[in-house]
């Protein structure tokens, strides 16, 4: 987060007191291996993550919560913890490896949670709402969850693998209007942006186009990788397809900061590739009026059929 996701970190630090979130960085953490290390050495990949889990357990002061803002970091921590819990053989092997570095980890000792999960489910929408001083009225947002936070979801933290609603509810609590769209959990391209850009560009265009079609002013994300692919590579994608999409991509923490009345600069706003300023200028002082429901009348032949509800 210190570098490519600096705005994520800055905005998180800016809002943490508002939501009573006490954060402690794991000293000397190492890279989680993303999706790459696992592809080369399976056991060592778990040992790599195991070191972070062990360091977290040893350093944690009065907590067993371990949070990550990045999808891949979160998933890898959760995955190693879950698979060590399920597979006694793996637990044993990882601990033998960790012992070479003087460490040990008992799976389950840390509860691995994504930052959005903590904000939505532990801190809660009401507590967030209570802190809002500048509601984001009039701002239409597409909540984008990506893949690895909601899938495979080892510990059943989310309401759906396909159409989760936690971030939508959070953004609504901030006063913004989440749009209904079908691509919430589609892939941002992941590492394909580097190893097979053509595949990634296709996926990125679909997401950006889909958000725009759904009427969103901007896309809200919860992961540095997704942000990078949708924001920085949006520019490359435009070159590739000769298009001119301008859909800004911000972190949910940045929008929380705005609603909490923080200065955009302190939230890292302005560091994005696709300028968010025009979209943010749409924020209105007043809540938009909801049109009153039309009175029911008798259906005539050829009238629309009723739509099934979501419940």
């Amino acid at each position: 987060m210190q570098r490519n996701a600096r705005p994520y970190l800055d905005s998180l630090l800016a809002i943490r007191e508002d939501i009573d979130l006490e954060l402690q960085e794991i000293e000397d953490w190492n890279c989680c291996g993303a999706t790459e290390y696992m592809s080369v050495h399976r056991v060592a990949a778990h040992a790599l993550v195991g070191r972070n889990l062990a360091l977290a357990r040893d350093q944690a002061r009065d907590t067993d919560l371990l949070t990550a803002g990045c999808s891949a970091c979160y998933l890898n921590l959760a995955k190693t913890d879950a698979q060590m819990r399920e597979d006694a053989g793996l637990k044993d092997t990882v601990n033998q490896a960790l012992a070479a570095g003087g460490l040990e980890y008992e799976p389950g000792a840390m509860k691995v949670r994504h930052l959005l999960d903590l904000v939505c489910h532990d801190i809660g929408y009401d507590a967030v709402k209570a802190r809002v001083v500048k509601p984001l009225h009039g701002l239409k947002v597409a909540a984008y969850y990506g893949c690895q936070v909601v899938r495979p979801d080892y510990d059943s933290r989310w309401d759906s693998h396909e159409h989760p609603t936690a971030m939508d509810k959070l953004l609504a609590a901030l006063g913004a209007e989440p749009v209904e769209w079908s691509l919430k959990t589609q892939c941002c391209g992941g590492h394909m942006s580097v190893i097979g850009p053509d595949v990634a560009f296709g996926l990125i265009r679909r997401l950006i186009h889909g958000a725009q079609e759904a009427g969103a002013d901007l896309v809200v994300t919860l992961c540095p990788m997704c942000q990078l692919n949708l924001d920085a590579y949006q520019v490359e994608m435009n070159k590739h397809f000769h298009t001119d999409y301008q859909v800004p991509v911000l972190y949910f923490t940045q929008l929380m900061g705005l609603a909490f009345g923080k200065k955009p600069k302190d939230l890292g706003i302005g560091k994005e590739f696709v300028d968010a300023a025009p979209a943010l200028a749409k924020i209105q002082a007043e809540a938009p009026k909801v049109a009153e429901a039309k009175r029911k009348r008798r259906p005539k032949p050829g009238d629309a059929l009723p739509m099934p509800g979501m419940e």
């Binding site: 190492n30 778990h46 092997t93 012992a99 070479a100």
Partner: peptide, 18 residues
Amino acid sequence: IDGMAQLTAILDKAKALE
């Protein structure tokens, strides 16, 4: 990272076990 030696030891051991 500071604990590079530690990490290397862990990864080497893990690969040997693997």
